[in-house]
């Protein structure tokens, strides 16, 4: 309730100041971090008709082991992460490797709202209104070379800000990867916010990947580095349990996790489980990327 009122205040504030690029800050009464709204972003047709998951659920039910193992730990420990100043480097096989200041990068990219379904490998799902820009736009700026086949992603490594990195749960920092054609797909975005607001720390501030047709763990959080490579990069969960988590990790009800079924999922906030759709319902757009591949082998 108080959150909704807060959101309303935020919207009012945004309208009142109506700055061109940049954001207005609204002090949150119930949280340590101030919440800021993006003044400028365009709506997109994605996710029309989907019922949005509550802001409260999206920001308190997180898998972000760097900030704690329990679902509510990341929110509790969110204040430890300092998302400003922040630099994102892009290097590897590209003509113009670069280091971007996060605010400059955001200012240079027209922001869009993308309402996407998020399907976690743990068989729950949400609908999140992300704010971000196509990953392809960033890749275009660095001009990948012809031999670049993959993009590797890396989360910030700093155990002071991300204390979970002190425990040997996964090999830190968290790393992820996409094939270059997957990365260039218009559905793949770098998200910098949700619900019109700057990304909450527990959701992977200041910038994270969103690949809606893949299980949530592919959508790496708090990214500091992208590297264009010729060979398939390592990914954090695949390294930890290769039989359970593949490189592709496309949402696929026909291929179960070795320890649980992927046929159905619980949408957060709903009682009955619903059927999981191939590619999380984005098959029409992305199935072509995997033509001729046996998806039970390349899970």
């Amino acid at each position: 309730m108080s959150r909704r009122r807060l959101l309303a205040t935020g919207i009012a504030g945004a309208i009142a100041t109506a700055a061109g690029i940049g954001s207005t800050t609204v002090a949150a009464s119930d949280g340590p971090a101030p919440r800021s709204k993006f003044a400028n972003f365009v709506k997109t047709p994605w996710g029309a008709g989907e019922h949005l998951t509550d802001y409260g659920a999206i920001t308190t039910y997180n898998n972000f082991y760097e900030l704690g193992l329990g679902k509510e730990d990341p929110q509790r420990n969110a204040h430890l992460l300092k998302p400003r100043p922040w630099t994102l480097s892009v290097d590897g096989l590209c003509a113009k490797p670069a280091r971007f200041d996060i605010d400059a990068l955001i200012a240079a990219q027209p922001l869009q709202e993308r309402i996407y379904r998020l399907r976690c490998v743990e068989a729950w799902s949400m609908v999140v209104p992300w704010i971000g820009f196509p990953l392809a736009a960033l890749l275009d700026r660095v001009e990948p070379l012809g031999n670049a086949k993959f993009v590797a992603f890396q989360t910030l490594f700093d155990p002071k800000q991300l204390p979970g990195q002190r425990s040997p749960l996964l090999e830190w920092p968290y790393v992820e990867g996409l094939r270059l054609d997957e990365a260039r797909h218009p559905l793949a975005i770098l998200a910098v916010g949700l619900y019109g607001e700057v990304m909450p720390n527990q959701n992977g501030a200041p910038i994270r990947l969103i690949v809606p047709w893949k299980y949530g763990f592919k959508s790496i959080k708090s990214i500091v580095r992208l590297t264009l490579t010729e060979t398939m990069p390592q990914t954090a969960w695949n390294r930890q349990a290769p039989r359970e988590y593949g490189f592709y990790a496309n949402v696929n009800p026909a291929v179960d996790h070795p320890r649980w079924s992927q046929k159905r999922e619980r949408r957060i906030g709903e009682f009955f489980r619903r059927d999981t759709l191939p590619f999380n319902g984005y098959g029409e757009e992305v199935a072509g990327l995997y033509a001729g591949m046996d998806l039970t082998t390349w899970y």
Binding site: D256, R259, W260, S261, K263, R264, R266, F271, F272, R273
Partner: peptide, 20 residues
């Protein structure tokens, strides 16, 4: 009841396939 809501086929598949 809460998690599967009596989806007995799914429950049976769980029992047979999921060692936990």
């Amino acid at each position: 009841i809460l998690d599967q809501f009596f989806a007995w086929t799914a429950i049976w598949a769980d029992v047979v396939k999921r060692r936990y």
